[in-house]
Computed example of a mutant assay.
Amino acid sequence: LSSFFQGLILGAYIQGIKTTNGIYTGGGLDWLTPFSLFTGLSVVVLYATLGCGWLIFKTEKMLQNRMFELMPKLLISLLVIFVCVSIYTPLAHHQIAERWFSQPQLFYFSPVPVLVLLFTFLAIKACKQRKEFLPFIYTLALVILAYSGFLISLWPYVIPPSVTIWEAAAPASSQLFALIGALILIPIILIYTGLSYWVFRDKVRVGDEGYH
């Protein structure tokens, strides 16, 4: 559910938010559209593919074999989703189409579809070769490519299609306060996250009592 609603929010965001003079003027259910429902399901498939790759890396035997069989199907589904979103987005939003097919955005964006095909092929091939870590890494690369395409499409609008990041920015004093807090907290978060991954770095083994 959290994945689905995250995708729902993403779809509503891509569709754009109606504002007048910086004030929201849309309806209460503007977020609920066929496209936002589709992006909700898309994010579920995306996270399922990532989870499948992670289970291949972290498990063995029967469960790992099931994930090796399932992951190519999820990757094909993910590729179809990328194609559908890539076709719908410029057709439904002429501003995004202009950004995609004008310079310098076209130069930045053109490698994305090629790399998506490449990493999808490599991930499927890694599953067939029963590589344990590469399917997850290649899927992670697909996630990065998807969000890079998303950023290229919407930049510099933080509230599409009318409010830019510069117009929505907080005062410099507030930004400085947030920066100081981030410089303190982010290293702490990275340290305890890295520690948790280090503690649970081994596989979950059948019949084992736990991590050693």
Rank of each mutant, 00 (worst) to 15 (best):
G40P: 00
G40R: 01
S196M: 14
F82A: 13
V80R: 04
A168Q: 04
R201F: 03
T59N: 12
V163N: 06
L46Y: 04
W166D: 12
Q175L: 10
L122Q: 15
G22P: 01
D30F: 01
Q6V: 13
L151M: 07
I159H: 08
F82E: 09
E209K: 15
F4I: 03
W155G: 05
T89H: 00
L145I: 10
Y157T: 11
L145Q: 10
G27M: 07
G181T: 03
G28V: 06
V45T: 09
D202I: 04
K58R: 11
L118V: 13
G207W: 01
Y147M: 11
S2L: 14
S36M: 00
L195H: 10
S86H: 11
T139A: 11
L195D: 01
L176A: 08
V163C: 03
L115H: 02
S196V: 14
F109D: 04
L91E: 12
I188P: 07
I56Q: 04
W155C: 02
L37R: 03
T19S: 11
Q6I: 15
Y211D: 09
I184A: 11
G149D: 03
Y157A: 02
V44K: 02
N65K: 10
V204I: 14
L142N: 04
F4L: 05
A168G: 11
L140Y: 03
V204N: 07
S77L: 09
T49Q: 08
T89C: 00
L63D: 03
T39H: 11
I87E: 08
I124A: 11
T49M: 04
K128A: 11
Q105S: 15
Y192C: 08
A178E: 02
F150I: 03
W198N: 11
V43D: 08
L117A: 15
L142F: 04
P72Y: 00
L75C: 00
G181M: 08
H93E: 12
R66T: 10
F107W: 12
W198V: 10
E98V: 12
Q175D: 02
F38M: 03
T193D: 06
W166E: 14
K18A: 12
Q129E: 05
R201S: 08
A126E: 01
F150E: 03
S153T: 07
P104Y: 01
F109M: 13
F119I: 06
